[in-house]
Design a protein around this nucleic acid. Structure first.
Lengths: 214, 214
DNA sequence: TAGATTGTTAATCGATTAACAATC
DNA sequence: TAGATTGTTAATCGATTAACAATC
């Protein structure tokens, strides 16, 4: 199997999410056509993409929600939980720590850091906030998978440098400023302003409709 | 000029962001090579994409940060501010209302709605929280451009239906569940779990590096 | 068997990369 | 003028759509 692109990974995770919902609703099988309806994609695309993971569907029946979900999960996550550390416990940082989707999901925060005395020492959703200076030692000891940057713009590059230095290989960056990292570190930028504005611009350019980020 | 794809719109907004930063730093010109460094893209790509907007660069000098920023902004936003309404004033909703990037940016919240008595009537960052029942009337009167869904999963489709009924044509959906909308309504899904997990999966598949969502 | 639905191959489309001629 | 940097054309690559043969 060829290494998946980011886009294919995202969509595979979307399928997992859909299978989970169907499983919870007690639906044992789903056709590519029904999945397409649910996700706002085309049946062709779904069949093609799921077939990346083997012949997991059954003609005449569709996909076994429980089984295929498991196949995708095993391939993408191998049962692992993604362990994350957060920098910046402001409004956005707190919302991330309290985000209910991570509970069902496979993301777990193992530490949070801030420079503000007012939040240091507090626990948010079970995660203790430590002073930023403690970060290198904590990270070297606990070996998290990814780091989340939710600090003000000006501080983002500094945090990125720190994360890189401690050996972190993946960063989610909520700060609306590009950070520089070495070749072998992956960054996922989430800029809320761009997310909102791009939708609006797209509305004014597009004829038909498109859903999601596709 | 052909209608831009979502991806090209997003990148144009990224260029605007970069030009703003350079302008603020007092830099009058920037080359495609330097921009590429800053944004983690290639110079070729940047030149090609900016040339969509006309011959706005100067050989030997590069791009006039102030002027080119203005060209892109005029084309994409025509000086407009995007007026948004929020549904769901939980942790994530509050973080969105207080997000500092929107101030500099072109996004303005004109109303927020919730079902929880505890938050109704409060003002968050200058935006008053109204009961969900008031939404249709407020939206019909104030005509916002986009609606933001930050309610629990189970309520997301209901809010989407309400938004569609009032004539909203663009929705940012933070709920980790796909919503169904008519063809002519655009949805931008932001699922934090998928954002985090896709980065992690990508780390485990990728050889080299890639930045952002490209 | 007949029919529905998958898996796969071919065709189209858009995005990225590479190369170079145009230009200040 | 010489040289650097843009704008544009051509080549490659990946993603999407369409069509259909394989399969239960």
């Amino acid at each position: 199997m060829r290494p998946l692109t980011r886009k294919k990974i995202e969509r595979a995770l979307l399928y997992i999410r859909a299978f989970e919902g169907l499983e919870k609703a007690g639906q044992a099988f789903v056709s590519s056509r029904e999945l397409a309806q649910i996700l706002g994609l085309t049946a062709d695309q779904i069949r093609k993409e799921i077939s990346n993971f083997g012949k997991v569907g059954r003609p005449r029946f569709g996909y076994d929600t429980v089984r295929v979900k498991k196949v995708l999960q095993d391939y993408l996550l191998k049962g692992k939980t993604v362990r994350a550390v957060l920098f910046g416990v402001g409004n956005l940082g707190r919302a991330v720590l309290r985000y209910p989707g991570f509970l069902r999901g496979k993301v777990k925060f193992i530490a949070a850091f801030d420079r503000d005395r007012a939040v240091i020492g507090k626990s948010i959703n079970g995660v203790r906030v430590s002073p930023a200076e403690a970060a290198p030692a904590v990270i070297r000891r606990t070996r998290p998978d990814i780091g989340i940057i939710a600090v003000p713009d000006e501080a983002s590059q500094g945090v990125a440098n720190l994360l890189v230095k401690t050996g972190i290989k993946g960063i989610v960056n909520f700060a609306p400023r590009s950070i520089r990292v070495p070749e072998n570190v992956l960054v996922n930028d989430i800029d809320l302003t761009i997310e909102f504005l791009s939708l609006y611009c797209d509305m004014r350019f597009t004829r038909g409709s498109r859903t999601g980020r596709n």
